[in-house]
């Protein structure tokens, strides 16, 4: 049976490790940290985990509508391509740090990239 990306990466436990690493990078980045100032950290972490699980092809569904709804208020506060790129950059760095292979990183980044228009409500 062909393994999904999620399984190849190491499943749920691997995603847990990735989420903390990724979230720390986002929180200390002055370009984007202000979008997270008032968020509940546990809730935010759960959302990021759900997103990464999905981006890795794991058991989680996401629709464009969810993405739009979740980011609507942030877009109103000025969320744009530069912020999307910053977050995507942190995701890429996280995967590199975890020793994920280039080809897998490419797959994840293309899944993540496919959400751009929905995230930015275009």
């Amino acid at each position: 049976m062909v393994q999904t990306l999620f399984e190849r990466i190491g499943g749920d436990a691997a995603v847990d490790g990735a989420v903390d690493l990724f979230y720390r990078k986002v929180l200390v980045d002055d370009r984007i940290s202000h979008f997270f100032e008032t968020t509940d950290m546990d809730e935010q972490r759960a959302k990021q985990k759900a997103f990464l699980t999905w981006a890795f092809g794991g058991p989680k569904e996401y629709s464009g509508k969810d993405m739009r709804e979740a980011h609507k208020d942030l877009v109103a506060k000025g969320l744009d391509d530069s912020h999307f790129d910053a977050v995507a950059g942190h995701l890429q760095d996280t995967l590199k740090e975890l020793g994920v292979g280039e080809d897998i990183i490419g797959e994840v980044m293309s899944v993540a990239g496919s959400t751009r228009d929905d995230v930015l409500n275009r």
Partner: peptide, 14 residues
């Protein structure tokens, strides 16, 4: 809330 963030950034898992 403030301290939780600092602890997380200092390396503690959430």
């Amino acid at each position: 809330n403030k301290t939780k963030k600092l602890a997380f950034l200092a390396g503690a898992a959430l």
